[in-house]
Amino acid sequence: MQEDKGIPPGWNYNPASWGQRMPIIILAIVGFFIAAYLALFQFKITSDVWEPFFGNDSRKILTSKTSQLLPIPDAALGALGYIADAVTGAIGGTNRWRTMPWIVIAFGLAVGPLGFISVLLVILQPVLYDAWCTLCLATAAISVVMIGPAMDEMLASLQYMKRVKDAGESKWKAFWGYKSIQGKVM
């Protein structure tokens, strides 16, 4: 039965299964290490950054005005974002789309905007600086790959919350995982 496997109504797979989430968590950890490495350069802890394809372009991108717009360098913010992705992806079991909508929505909000910002920063590289950064491109690719699966799980939680609303139950309690609709899996 679908409910026994945690499959949301109308779905043919469980978007909260470990098979769906583990690749995102692993990618987030890889993204964290790359972004942390780039942040070490931006914080001047290391004096050089690895760049196999574009000569001095990584230095140009990582020291650009865009990378320093905020009080914290963009790579450090990216590293924090990837940790948030990994942690929110790892919390909860395979039924978390209905038992922990709050963490699933936090997960989606952590993954989605990071992916958007990564794409924006990649577009700015050649447009503003006529340069490319290999590791920046790698982290952007990681961010984009993570979006689809994270949004699937968030969609399942949002659909669950709509079913709660349609049943006249407390959306607030359901959001925080205090109860399912009239004790039923929905």
Rank of each mutant, 00 (worst) to 15 (best):
A28K: 12
V144C: 07
W18L: 13
G148Y: 04
G89P: 02
V185D: 14
I25Y: 09
E153A: 01
A35Y: 01
P15S: 04
K60V: 10
G168S: 10
W18A: 12
I147E: 10
R96D: 03
P73W: 10
I142H: 04
A84G: 10
L128A: 05
T46M: 10
Q2M: 09
I91Y: 11
G177H: 05
M1I: 03
T139L: 00
I91F: 07
A16V: 01
G112T: 15
I105D: 07
W172E: 12
K5W: 05
V164R: 15
L109R: 09
W18I: 11
K179L: 09
G78K: 14
G93A: 00
A86L: 09
P9N: 15
D4Y: 03
N95M: 01
Q20M: 10
G89A: 11
N95S: 09
F53Y: 12
I181T: 13
Y129D: 08
D4T: 04
F43W: 14
A79K: 02
G31S: 06
F116A: 13
G108N: 11
A28V: 01
A86P: 07
A84E: 06
T88L: 14
Q159M: 12
G112F: 15
Q125W: 00
S67P: 00
A28W: 09
D57S: 10
A16N: 06
C133P: 08
A138N: 03
M151F: 07
G115L: 05
R59A: 02
T63I: 05
L38E: 14
L27Q: 13
P71F: 04
D130T: 11
L120M: 05
A35P: 00
V104S: 12
P9S: 15
S180C: 00
Y129S: 07
R21Y: 02
A106E: 10
F116K: 08
D152T: 06
V144K: 08
K60Q: 12
K65V: 08
D130A: 14
V122F: 07
I91N: 10
I25S: 05
A174Q: 09
I29C: 09
M151K: 14
T99G: 03
W97T: 05
F32A: 13
A131E: 04
K162G: 00
V87M: 13
V145Q: 07
Y82I: 05
V87P: 12
I61N: 08
I105N: 12
